[in-house]
């Protein structure tokens, strides 16, 4: 299984871990951390949007949040997925 990470646990950041899963499993998102309770649905939506825009259909995403804004979350998810796909240096 191909796994990759991006981000940190610093303030206003998040650590995103992604793992490629078998075809047909779909997108699974797990969020923990400081904003997980209040903003979970918004964060899930943003994560799902980024993953869909990258054409990925089967993936496990785990987000450890430390107050990341939408913009940061999107960047970290994109970076983690790109690393998983091996498409970026």
């Amino acid at each position: 299984m191909n796994t990759a990470q991006a981000g940190t646990l610093e303030s206003m950041d998040c650590l995103v871990t992604v793992s490629q899963t078998a075809p047909g499993v779909g997108v699974k998102i797990k969020i923990t951390g400081s904003s997980a309770v209040r903003f979970k649905s918004a964060m899930e939506k943003k994560t799902a949007e980024v993953i869909a825009s990258m054409g990925v259909k089967d993936i496990d995403v785990s987000i450890q949040d430390n107050g990341a804004l939408d913009i940061v979350l999107g960047a970290r998810v994109e970076a983690a997925v790109k690393r998983m796909m091996g498409g970026d240096k």
């Binding site: 991006a6 960047a75 994109e78 240096k89």
Partner: peptide, 9 residues
């Protein structure tokens, strides 16, 4: 790579 993506966002 991650910094470049973050700055881009």
């Amino acid at each position: 790579d991650t910094a470049r993506i973050l700055v881009q966002h």
